[in-house]
């Protein structure tokens, strides 16, 4: 692993809202190409950590840096996918990717990505005609439009049914491996973390309580092995 030259470096990061501490002295590194799953109970601070990395908020103390650049404002080298799709309902699926920028290159790129998420035939449709899973696939394609180094996923699969969710997991894993992305996934589903991530962070009581490599080989089709890892993570979360 490239621990000596990490993509992201968090140093003594704290975040307070008034008197309330949300994150307390978090320090870690994330290597380029990692798939990190951040798990923990609700209100534990994992979403806040993701927002700090995205540059949507700044830490009260400490600093977040990406490739030696300290993140003080919007991290333009990252893209975030939210729990809800946040598609613009008045734009076609393709325009949601290009934001109405109709240069031939951006249209071609959008078409490629729609093909990648298997939605080519919906390019001209409006979001209202799509199912929940299809909308999240559009959101994923949109996140990839600017070739980001870092993909931040804020529980994007939380609202999907079990089958759709499983297919989405495989799609994200595929893209992660083919595009050489770095992914940070916030989830409260320990099985999802065990299935997808090669590195697991447990955030508990506003601290980074536990981090561990998940050495299972991809594709992780052995459900017993995955369940065992998930069990490990779960015991750390509730310990």
């Amino acid at each position: 692993m490239t621990q000596n030259n990490p993509l992201l470096r968090l140093e003594h990061v704290s975040k307070e809202y008034g008197n309330q501490t949300v994150l307390n002295d978090v320090s870690t590194t994330i290597a380029s190409g990692d798939f990190v799953a951040m798990v923990g109970m609700s209100g534990g601070g994992k979403s806040t950590l993701l927002r700090l990395i995205a540059g949507l908020e700044s830490p009260t103390n400490g600093q977040v840096s990406q490739q030696d650049r300290i993140i003080t404002e919007l991290n333009t080298d990252s893209r975030t996918m939210f729990q809800d799709d946040r598609l613009l309902p008045w734009m076609t699926v393709r325009d949601n990717l290009t934001f109405g920028n109709h240069t031939p290159q951006s249209i071609e790129h959008a078409n490629d990505l729609l093909a990648r998420v298997d939605l080519s035939s919906f390019a001209e449709s409006y979001p209202t005609d799509l199912s929940g899973g299809q909308k999240q696939r559009v959101a994923l394609a949109r996140a990839l439009m600017s070739h980001p180094k870092l993909l931040l996923l804020d529980e994007p699969l939380g609202a999907l049914d079990a089958f759709t969710r499983r297919k989405m997991q495989d799609l994200i894993l595929d893209i992660w491996r083919q595009e050489h992305l770095t992914v940070i996934l916030v989830t409260h589903d320990v099985t999802e973390a065990a299935r997808m991530a090669n590195k697991v962070f447990v955030i508990k009581n506003h601290r980074l309580a536990w981090q561990e490599h998940n050495a299972l080989n991809y594709p992780r089709n052995n459900s017993q092995a995955v369940a065992a890892v998930a069990d490990d993570i779960l015991s750390q979360v509730i310990a």
Binding site: L56, L88, S146
Partner: peptide
């Protein structure tokens, strides 16, 4: 506001925010 945050995260300029998000939403 969530759409506005999305626009911010996806690097839209103020004009683009207005043209692509605020105005169509208010229309």
């Amino acid at each position: 506001p969530e759409l506005l945050e999305m626009g911010h995260v996806y690097g839209l300029t103020r004009w683009q925010q207005f043209r692509q998000i605020i105005f169509p939403s208010a229309l």
